[in-house]
Simulated scan of single mutants.
Amino acid sequence: MGKTATDMDKRAEARMPAVEALLRDELSRGDRALRSVPPVLSHMLASSGHSLVSDAIVARLRGMLASLSMQLLAAKDAGWQPGEETAELDRLSDRLASDSVVLSYCYAMAMEGHLAEKFEQRASIDPILSPLLQELIASENAATADMAMSTLAAQSRFVQSQRRMDLPLAELPAELFHAVLKRWEAHNRNDPAMSPALKALKAEYDEGASRIGLLARLVSSMRGGAFVALQLDHAGFALFASALSALSKQPRELAVLACHEHQAARLALSLRASGLDMAAIEAQFGLLHPDERLPRDIEAIAPERASILLNNSNARDAG
Rank of each mutant, 00 (worst) to 15 (best):
R157V: 09
S130T: 05
M44P: 01
S28A: 14
D191R: 07
S221H: 09
T144L: 13
A148Y: 03
A138K: 07
D55Q: 15
E282K: 14
R60S: 13
L276N: 00
V101I: 09
D77G: 05
L271E: 00
M111V: 13
M147T: 10
D25C: 06
A264F: 02
A75R: 01
D126W: 05
A209E: 14
A186G: 05
L198D: 04
A116I: 05
L22M: 13
L27I: 11
L201F: 04
Y105M: 07
D126N: 15
A265L: 03
Q231T: 11
G225D: 12
Q160F: 06
D297H: 14
L96D: 01
L176V: 09
R122K: 10
I301G: 01
L201N: 00
I298Q: 03
D90H: 14
A75I: 05
A264H: 04
A315H: 01
A229M: 11
P39W: 11
K10S: 14
S48M: 05
A258D: 07
A143Y: 11
S248A: 15
E112I: 05
R211F: 06
L201H: 04
P38Y: 03
E292S: 14
S139Y: 07
L247S: 00
M109S: 07
N188Q: 09
A66V: 13
L215S: 06
S130V: 06
Q263S: 13
